[in-house]
């Protein structure tokens, strides 16, 4: 039994991390007032660029750097369109989605069906991995998962306990005030959008270089959208996002397990479970339940224009 529990938790953690990079990146971006709906496209670009480097250079560190750079470059384009040109963020996000999906398929053509045989391998952390159940499921993972253990608390502290975090929150609530106080709203938004996009690209690398190890068109199969949903689900809070991601991961893993052990329900029922969970969670996290602490940044999706102050 404990083997099964370990297996469920460790798979759920692996799944959670592959969407969390994108979700936390998007939290930063949205806290700064820019909504990027093109996560799926950026993830695919991250996945394909990392895989291309893995195939041709056989170097994971280099692959990760390239992934981050590709994500940052796409973030720069997105920031230029939404912050400088003040384009509609929803439309620009859709453009990013189709652009990323198409371009990733195009440049990934040469490595579709090619095996890189190079992935982030899991390794045990001494001592910690000896803890029953938690040890083997949490501390026998790959480096991208361990990095997430640090990223979550750091981003929490950054957003809620530091001065730059306060500025970040103000950026999404009332950029005009920040501008009057002498901060460069445009530069800050550029920075957070680029950071968010780079994190999203790392999510893509989790898919092609850790969770599985191949490249195929559209291989993220909707993870970018789950990340977008997680941001709202988590009320823009990285720690809640962690629980949300784990919940999604666990539900989808358990579905297959129950299906096998004992049940007379059709398999489609289990495939629907994550969506049922989403609806239940949304009931509790939105609407009347959350009226008092509506977490959506007030200036989200509103391009900042100095002349309209």
């Amino acid at each position: 039994m404990s083997v099964l529990i370990v297996s469920i938790i460790s798979t759920a953690v692996l799944y959670a991390v592959s969407v969390l990079y994108a979700a936390i990146g998007e939290i930063f971006s949205q806290k700064a007032g820019v909504m990027n709906l093109g996560l799926e496209g950026i993830m695919l670009m991250g996945a394909v660029s990392g895989y291309l480097v893995a195939v041709h250079q056989k170097n994971l560190a280099l692959a990760l750097i390239v992934v981050i750079l590709v994500g940052a470059a796409l973030g720069l384009v997105f920031a230029f369109v939404t912050v400088t040109l003040q384009a509609d963020q929803t439309v620009a996000g859709m453009a990013m989605l189709t652009f990323g999906t198409g371009l990733s398929g195009f440049i990934g053509n040469s490595v579709a069906g090619v095996n890189a045989n190079l992935a982030f391998q899991s390794f045990e952390i001494p001592l910690l991995c000896k803890i029953p159940i938690i040890g083997p499921s949490l501390f026998d993972q790959n480096i991208l998962v361990y990095a997430m253990y640090i990223i979550v608390p750091v981003s929490m502290i950054y957003i809620y306990k530091t001065r730059p975090g306060m500025i970040l929150r103000a950026l999404g609530e009332n950029p005009a005030t920040l501008d009057s106080a002498g901060y460069n709203v445009f530069a800050l938004r550029y920075g957070y959008v680029i950071f968010g996009s780079a994190m999203t690209a790392v999510s893509g690398a989790c898919v092609s270089l850790a969770y599985t190890n191949f490249w195929s068109d559209n291989m993220t199969s909707g993870k970018g959208w789950i990340a977008v949903a997680l941001v709202v689900f988590a009320s823009w809070n990285p720690v809640i996002a962690v629980f949300g991601a784990l919940l999604f991961g666990a539900i989808s893993v358990i579905g297959v397990d129950i299906q096998m052990v004992s049940s007379t329900l059709p398999s489609q029922f289990y495939s629907a479970l994550p969506y049922v969970a989403t609806i239940i969670a949304l009931i509790f996290t939105t609407g009347n339940f959350r009226k008092k602490r509506s977490a959506a940044p007030a200036a989200l999706c509103i391009p900042y224009d100095r002349e309209e102050r």
Partner: peptide, 25 residues
């Protein structure tokens, strides 16, 4: 023969989970 069904034609996540569940069993 024990069957695990992903309920999708293409989804690496689900396929991974099916294989993992079978192995766990």
């Amino acid at each position: 023969v024990q069957v695990a069904c992903a309920d999708t034609w293409y989804d690496p996540d689900k396929e991974t989970q099916c294989a993992k569940s079978l192995i766990d069993a």
